[in-house]
């Protein structure tokens, strides 16, 4: 591994994180928004792995499993909420959720 390679990974993960973040900001489909969040979390996972490698430390890679579990739980909840909403308001996108404001 060349010395700069880890930095490239870090940069990649940062970019992925940013893409996820921006995606969440620009997309209206709740499903896509959840996917964006997933993308952000996975970008973090990549970071952890990279750091673990850089530091020669196993825990960086172990943490990833924790994160994946949490991310899965989140997705489950998110999907459940979306489904529940879709029953009442089919085809609603995120911008339609404006009952509460002010």
């Amino acid at each position: 591994m060349s010395p700069n390679l880890p930095l490239a990974y870090l940069a990649l993960s940062a970019i992925l994180f940013a893409i996820g973040g921006v995606g969440l900001l620009v997309r209206r489909n709740p499903l896509v928004m959840i996917m964006c969040v997933e993308l952000m979390l996975n970008a973090v996972n990549l970071t952890f792995v990279t750091f673990g490698k850089m530091l020669d430390d196993i825990s960086g890679q172990v943490i990833v499993f924790f994160v994946m579990v949490v991310a899965a739980a989140e997705v489950v909840i998110g999907l459940a909420l979306i489904v529940a909403m879709a029953r009442r308001r089919p085809n609603a996108n995120a911008d339609d959720l404006r009952l509460l404001r002010g």
Partner: peptide, 17 residues
């Protein structure tokens, strides 16, 4: 200031960002 609280999730996310 209240208008900032527009009700759009994306807008809130932008504020966080």
């Amino acid at each position: 200031l209240r208008t900032v609280q527009s009700g759009y999730v994306r807008w809130y996310a932008l504020m966080i960002g």
